[in-house]
């Protein structure tokens, strides 16, 4: 599962991510990271079963947490060309027997590269 961690100006100075990882002994894959003047945000991927426990832990460190349920979505405009297939870092897209492009959205790491590559704007990322 993807979760977005929102750090305010006090939490941003502490090594919260690593603390939680060590305390809970959990692996986290960092998908996105942004540092702003007053706020920072990190999107991490956590094993589904551990998510609730880890989220509670982050909250106890003063980090706001938002679960990102949305992933990449393929709209009506899709021509089934396949331009997206080779640019996706985690192989979300493949063709089925009828030559339709199938999106295995659960693999999506929200990198957005497919969105800009699609020639007919058929892909979008749901928040």
């Amino acid at each position: 599962m993807m979760v977005e961690l929102i750090y305010d100006s006090s939490a941003v100075k502490k090594p919260v991510l690593v603390s939680v990882a060590l305390e809970e002994g959990v692996l986290m894959n960092i998908i996105e990271a942004e540092v702003g003047a007053r706020e920072g945000r990190i999107v991490v991927e956590i094993d589904d079963e551990l998510a609730d426990r880890v989220v509670t832990k982050f909250e106890s460190h003063g980090v706001r947490v938002r679960k990102l349920i949305g992933t990449i979505e393929k709209g009506e405009a899709c021509l089934d060309c396949g331009a997206c297939i080779s640019v996706c870092p985690v192989n979300v897209f493949r063709k089925d027997e009828s030559e339709r492009v199938i999106a295995e959205t659960e693999k999506c790491v929200r990198c957005r590269i497919c969105i800009e590559v699609c020639p007919v704007n058929a892909l979008s990322l749901q928040e």
Binding site: G82, A83, I85
Partner: peptide, 10 residues
């Protein structure tokens, strides 16, 4: 990995 740019379905 390879991407087609033409649509086989269409």
């Amino acid at each position: 990995r390879v991407s087609p740019l033409s649509s086989y379905r269409m």
